[in-house]
Design a protein around this nucleic acid. Structure first.
Lengths: 66, 66
DNA sequence: AACAATTGTCAATTATATATGACAATTCAA
DNA sequence: TTGAATTGTCATATATAATTGACAATTGTT
């Protein structure tokens, strides 16, 4: 689905630590990693910044149309 | 702020039409164009698709750090 | 000037993202 | 195999995204 977990583990931090750095609750991170909901743009941007990547890489799924 | 209005006008459609195509209320489009709030990721993705662009182009503001 | 289409905005409501606290399940090192 | 850290999940509460309807302000056309 999305690749937040992989980026998080790549920098070796826990959900708790990622939550702290992006200023949300740990449960929010958990739900997002498990694809259970739909974060706000602001949070997506904070996630991308903290994970050292960008919006497209984290959230843009190319849909091929044939 | 963001460049949704420019992309919308580039394809020559009204807020009402963009709202219809992204399946939200016109007021929602208006608020987003005027930077008054924080859309959901799902909506950001629909906007990027309808406007023929991508998340980074619409919403990723590069912060230079020096 | 008059009219139509578009945009800005307000108030009230509904849907849902996010918070908080708590606890069970799992993973992993001692 | 015990215990600590991490993760999954539940229930309740709060903040805010998004809807609906309506109307004023603006822009564009004839």
């Amino acid at each position: 689905m999305n690749s937040i977990r992989q980026y998080r583990q790549a920098i070796g931090i826990s959900q708790t630590e990622l939550a702290k750095r992006t200023k949300v609750a740990r449960q929010t991170i958990n739900l997002i990693e498990n694809g259970k909901y739909n974060p706000s743009l602001d949070l997506c941007i904070r996630l991308a910044q903290v994970l050292g990547t960008d919006l497209n890489t984290l959230f843009w799924k190319v849909v091929d149309d044939d």
